[in-house]
Design a protein around this nucleic acid. Structure first.
Lengths: 97, 97
DNA sequence: ATTATATTTCGATATTACTAGAAATAACTT
DNA sequence: AAGTTATTTCTAGTAATATCGAAATATAAT
């Protein structure tokens, strides 16, 4: 992944509330967690929560799946992995040469 | 590491310019890279660069070592690792139980 | 002491982000 | 079609961040 996209993902993770949301989504595994579930669990006003979720979505860190009226948030583990890969790939590159 | 500190580190990495700076520091390995070296390499005004470096310092992602007039920036690899550990540790925890 | 070099702090401006109530939309139920 | 539930968009106020020139500081050289 490129620098701009990685920075975007890191930025979205770099806010306590959003990191907490993301963490809850990650914990929920492949089935995900409902927006309402997050709201209840984290006690965040709906509008604020929705705003933060859209940040995580725009970075590709999570996706959503609808089941009738309920929207589930699901972690995109691959995205997290590519962020981590970006952070680690150039480690000590100048010394290696 | 706790959520607040991790979010702080991610926030500092979550800006294209700072991520680029950090990357250059990481690439430089254990000897580090001078502030002036970064300035030349990345073509950032001194005051802007200094501002971003202090962000990375405050998150504990880098440290500095002085050699006469020159300040070298050195990556704190352990800090990066603990950020990564935080991101990965709770993966699918709710499903595992 | 003066000058040169390396880096930071100050100050000012512009942009972006955070928060949350109120209104709107989407999907289902009766 | 009227009501209920789940979530988002709108709006607006406040706070935080980014940028960079100019001035200040720190260290060394002459």
């Amino acid at each position: 992944m490129d620098l701009e996209n990685t920075a975007k993902a890191l930025k979205e993770l770099g806010h306590p509330t959003r990191l907490n949301i993301y963490r809850s989504v990650v914990r929920a595994g492949y089935q995900g967690i409902a927006v309402g579930g997050l709201q209840e669990k984290l006690e965040i006003p709906g509008s604020t929560l929705s705003h933060h979720i859209s940040g995580l979505l725009s970075a590709g860190l999570i996706t959503q799946r609808r089941e009738s009226r309920t929207l589930f948030c699901v972690a995109e583990y691959d995205k997290l992995q590519s962020v981590i890969d970006f952070l680690q790939e150039e480690c000590c590159a100048d010394e290696k040469t």
